[in-house]
């Protein structure tokens, strides 16, 4: 898996357009979810790895998304569910590019133990790009803030 800054940045960039912004938080959460579910256990208590590794599979993450969505009010639940699932799909679409020493992720768990990956980079390689992602997000946020202020100024002028 790439680091979570890379996962977050990819989700952030996809959710820049205003029309997609309303449910961006569930989308961000979905984009981090597979790692949030499994990695803390693996890092803090490595013997639990064999038990929790399946939480980093599409089927298990999808079940968790359906569960999480149930904790949102009914009128937004379906949109939250969809955005969580799309975020998860984005996460795995990045993970599929990474290299493995032996076997990769079990994408078809629990139906198959077959694994595959494109093997383009090691999981730690993405860390080099973290400053770039942070810089990009800050620039985009600054531009969006500037535009918002300009819009607000325009409105104030029209009102007066």
């Amino acid at each position: 898996m790439p680091d979570l800054v890379t996962h977050f940045a990819s989700a952030y960039i996809l959710k820049i357009p205003d029309r997609w912004a309303r449910f961006r938080i569930p989308f961000y959460l979905g984009a981090l979810l597979p790692d949030l579910l499994s990695r803390p256990w693996m890092i803090l208590y490595p013997p639990a790895s064999s038990l929790v590794y399946s939480l980093h599979t599409p089927s298990m993450t999808a079940i968790v998304c359906l569960l999480i969505a149930q904790f949102f009010e009914e009128n937004i639940r379906s949109n939250v569910r969809l955005n969580l699932l799309l975020g998860v799909a984005l996460h795995y679409s990045l993970d599929i590019f990474q290299k493995y020493q032996t076997v990769g992720y079990h994408w078809l768990f629990p139906f198959s133990w077959k694994t595959f990956g494109l093997g383009l980079f090691w999981p730690e390689d993405s860390v080099k790009f973290v400053p770039l992602w942070i810089g990009l997000i800050l620039i985009i946020e600054a531009v969006l803030l500037y535009r918002k202020r300009q819009r607000d100024k325009g409105r104030t002028r029209l009102d007066s």
């Binding site: 979570l4 999981p123 080099k128």
Partner: peptide, 15 residues
């Protein structure tokens, strides 16, 4: 995995 520690640390922020 030379960048592993850095990866874990930077990953805390977006979470």
């Amino acid at each position: 995995a030379k960048g592993r520690r850095a990866k874990i640390i930077v990953s805390i922020v977006p979470a």
